[in-house]
Structures are given as C-alpha cells and as structure tokens.
Design a protein around this nucleic acid. Sequence first.
DNA 1: GACAAGCAGATTGTCGACAATCTAACAAGA
DNA 2: TCTTGTTAGATTGTCGACAATCTGCTTGTC
Lengths: 229, 229
Amino acid sequence: MAKLDFSPIPDTTRRAEIVALLRRAILTGQLEPGQKLNELRISEQMRVSRAPLREAMRELVQEGILTSIPYAGTFVIDVTAKDIIDAYSLNKVLDEFAIELAWPQRDRRFFDELDRRHEAVKQATRAIDTTRQIETALQLHGLIYEWADNSVLLETWQRLTSRLQMYFALHQRARNEPVPAENVHETYVALMKGSEMRAAQRHAREHIDLDFEELLGYARGLEKRATKN
Amino acid sequence: MAKLDFSPIPDTTRRAEIVALLRRAILTGQLEPGQKLNELRISEQMRVSRAPLREAMRELVQEGILTSIPYAGTFVIDVTAKDIIDAYSLNKVLDEFAIELAWPQRDRRFFDELDRRHEAVKQATRAIDTTRQIETALQLHGLIYEWADNSVLLETWQRLTSRLQMYFALHQRARNEPVPAENVHETYVALMKGSEMRAAQRHAREHIDLDFEELLGYARGLEKRATKN
DNA sequence: GACAAGCAGATTGTCGACAATCTAACAAGA
DNA sequence: TCTTGTTAGATTGTCGACAATCTGCTTGTC
C-alpha cells in the first residue's frame, strides 16, 4: 500500500474562518494596534452573526493579540517598546532550547525542509512581498521548534510568533522601505546543517539581535503615541 | 491625600465566572482528562445559556486545557507522560531565565512576599488541603516570574502553570497519599534570599527534578489508559 | 450472517432579538 | 464656572430557537 499523507480537512466552521481572517488582518497591520473591533459592523461585513464572531474574538484574546474589556469592547493589543524587548529576549532563550532539543533529531527530511523554507523566503524577497517574507522567515525559524518534539514548547513559540509577526509587519509598514537582502538567512541555514551546535545557538542569538535593533528603533517611536479610539 | 491602592473590580460577566468555575473543576481533577463537556447539560446546571458557556470554553481551549473538535465536542485534554516531560523540561528553562531576570529586581517587597507565600504553602500543608497546597506552591514559584518584569514570560508561565497544576492534582488524586513534608521549599526560599544566583538556578533545576520523578511515575501509568467517553 | 443505505436522536454551530451596561451630551444647581 | 444628576444612543452580554452535523441503530438486500 502506497504511503500517502493526507492533509487535514479544513475546519469548516464559520468561527475558524473568522479567526483566520481576523488574525491575518491583525498580523499584517490592517487592523492597527489599539483599534476597537465593533462586533455589529464586522459581523455585517462578514455576513455572519455575532455569535461565531464573538467566539472567534475570545480565541484571539487568549492568543494574546486582542484584549477585551467587559462592556467596553475588544481591541487590538497596543505595542510598546517593552513588549518587543520582552518578546525578543524570551525568543532568544527559547531558540537556544529548541536548537538543543532539535539538534539530535535532525535528519534528511529536516534538511530538505530547511532548504524548502529557505527558498520560500528568498522567493518572497524577490517578489517584494513583505507580508509573505515575514511569514516565511518565521516559518523557517519555526522548523527547529517543530523538530524539537516538545509540544508545549511548540505551542509557546507559536503564540510568540503571532506577536513577532505583528511587530515586524508594523515595522515594515512604518518605514515603508525596500526589504532586506535576500541572503540574510544563509549563515543560519548553513550552521543548522553543520555539526557545531554551540555555534548555531550563538548565531541564533546574534542573528536575532540584528533584526531586534531595527525593530527597537521603531518601537521607541511608538512609545509616545497615545492610544486613540 | 492618602495613598490607596484599589484592587480592580471583578469582571462581572457570566462568561468570566464560568471560565473560573470550569478552570477550577479541570485543574482540581473534578473533570477528568478526556472527558467530554456537554454544553446543554452544563449550561442547565449553571443556569446559564449556551452562549457565554461556549465563549468560556473557547477561552479554555486557547488556554490549552480543553480541546475542541468541530461538531464532535469539547474535551478535557488528555495527559500523557510525554506532555508532563515536555512541560517540565520547558519549565526548567523558563525558571532559569526568570531567576536571572528577577535577581537584580529583588527588593524588600520581594522578600516579604516570598515569606508570605511560603507561609501559605506551609499552612495548606498543615491543613492537609492538597488542592490549596498545589496552588500555593505554584504561586510561590510564580513570584520570580512576577518580578522578572517580562510580560510575555509571565503569560507563558501562567499558561504552563495551568497544566502543571492539573498534572499535580491528578497525581495526588491517583496516589491518594498524605501530602509531602512541610519544609520542602525551605532551601528554595533561602537561596532566593541569598546572593548566589547560580546556586539558586541550580537548585531550581534539581528541586523541580525531584517532584518530576514522582509525577513521571504516575504519568507512565497513564500511558496505556485508553481515552474513554 | 455481512454489509450498505437510511433513518432517528442527540449534540454542536449559528442566528436574530432582548437585556444590561457604558459613553457622551445636556440640564440643573451650588 | 464647576460639579452633579439625567437621559438618549450605541455597544456589549445573554437568551431561546433553528439549522447543520454526527452517531448509532434499524432495515433491507445479497
């Protein structure tokens, strides 16, 4: 019997679709930080009743990208410089741990997938699709978490990723510059294929620091921004 | 004008109360792993309509202690040995990080709070209130996370704590033994007051390992248990 | 007896309407 | 003028009913 991997059938509830739609809108920056989500308006736009919409929003609140105040409304989280610092410093620690766990698990499929995702980043970069570039870059880094074989760690990282993606998207939107070079991840990929785990961990830390500095500059600009709406 | 700290007014939505009720039922083991939550039955028991109940369940799904299958139902998560191992190994990493961040932030209030929470554990132990003992012990360990001044880290730990509390409760329920000694946290507290950060970190790792071994034994027994309901 | 089709019951997903609460504008009084 | 009470409008929270889906049983056919 031929070995065949079926992809999971899509969640065919309105709720799941709404979650995906809203998450995408938030993570790409179409919904701005601090913005209020009017249930009636959104439900009418989506041609959906408020029940599944509200359930979807509850999920995103727990996911950490929305915040809810009873009888006042649900808002996109505000982003402060400290939030970005906090997320990144935790990310460093998790990366180091994930590399340690994933290291002995690396196999042929790992390396293939590493190349595939790296290629996806480069392609998005060439196409100057910044949104997709951010997505693919995070997916590239997510590989070590998938291979770490620790479900709690993976979940934790996915939560963190939501925020990182949002931060990056806001950053890109704000400066509105051409995307970074195509080969920023070359060294990372090479090290993940190599035999020096410590070197890979060290690079991960430093690599993160690089992007971080840029993001932080953007974050500082945010600090004095008052929450409107 | 006298300086007065008001505690935040409680969330007076049914949803919030339901979340608290359900969470407590799950974390104390009253709702068993794998068990299905019948919406109609629960909503009738709570004298509440299904809408807020469903929203509450959505929150707990995202919190990681419930799992939902569309059109099939919502279930308490199953606990496997691997889940416990994963949670603990991540906890070790986070503890080390939290101690590092919190270390320079320790002040008078920190030490006071440390004693207060330690006392709470000992009191629960004397009262042989195992549920409360687990709660207070986790709160004691949570102090370093609160002092670490990293909101993402704190959130992450709180999510993790939900599971740890559940695992401990199940463990206690299963063996049904008198609670451990009253002074298990003496060394931890002493080290957190001391000046040797490395020693504190090392102890945290080892202390965790101690409880872990016991829990793991319980977890192994779970492995062959089929999911009923 | 084995198996597929179809039906009935139970359960989850979704809807539209009503109740509770908040906000902001306005009026009244010190 | 400032403060306080009131009220109207908008928005969120909750409810009960209906639609979609699943599960297990029954029935009919071979």
